[in-house]
């Protein structure tokens, strides 16, 4: 079989495009359950913050720990983590600890006066994380981050009286819908 330069270039282009698309879709599949999980956690935790603010702190603590454990289980079941025999699964708890430390350090330095400030800050950081991740892993993840960030700001500045309820419905809903959107690809 004679393969010309043009044939080789075209074949490599086809192979690269197919491989990149496959990897991107694989990334969407891996990310989707995490988005849905954290969307549900956001919805429940913000709803408690709105309806029962006295129980908000304990509810957030319990839900964050439960969500982190669930994320680790989901990550552990992900074939890409198991198949390579790598330590990739360890990234999830490491990221979680880093994220938590960053939030706590920021709160200590900035001394927010209103619970809404932290309630907006955390999803904004999450939104940035999704945008950064999406730039490499696929634009749908970046879109989810943009939507979460924009809607958080809209709720914070536009509807401060019902901000917690806004985040429960809109913030949690954005993550859940984004996860379903990724899964449909």
């Amino acid at each position: 079989m004679a393969v010309t330069h043009e044939d080789a270039a075209a074949a490599l282009r086809l192979a690269n495009e197919a491989g990149e698309r496959s990897a991107m879709l694989r990334g969407y599949q891996s990310t989707a359950p995490h988005l849905i999980l954290w969307g549900v956690i956001y919805a429940v935790a913000y709803a408690i913050s709105y309806g029962r603010p006295a129980q908000a702190n304990i509810a957030w603590a319990v839900l964050i720990v439960a969500g982190s454990v669930a994320s680790m289980v989901i990550g552990g079941r992900d074939r890409s983590d198991r198949a390579a025999g790598s330590k990739k699964w360890a990234i999830v708890p490491a990221l979680f600890v880093t994220f938590l430390a960053f939030i706590m350090a920021t709160a200590a330095v900035m001394q927010p006066q209103d619970p809404k400030q932290m309630a907006a800050f955390v999803p904004l950081v999450v939104a940035v994380a999704y945008i950064v991740m999406g730039l490499g892993a696929g634009r749908r993840i970046a879109f989810a981050g943009v939507a979460l960030g924009v809607l958080t700001l809209v709720g914070y500045f536009g509807f401060p009286a019902i901000f917690m309820l806004w985040m429960a419905v809109v913030g949690g809903g954005t993550l859940i819908l984004s996860g379903l959107w990724l899964r449909r690809v």
């Binding site: 079989m1 393969v3 074949a11 086809l14 192979a15 690269n16 495009e17 197919a18 491989g19 990149e20 698309r21 496959s22 990897a23 694989r26 074939r79 890409s80 198949a83 390579a84």
Partner: peptide, 18 residues
Amino acid sequence: HQSLRLRIMATLNALPPN
């Protein structure tokens, strides 16, 4: 080398082993 088979292989090659 056939184009669709190449794309099939590239797509499956991007998946983790097994």
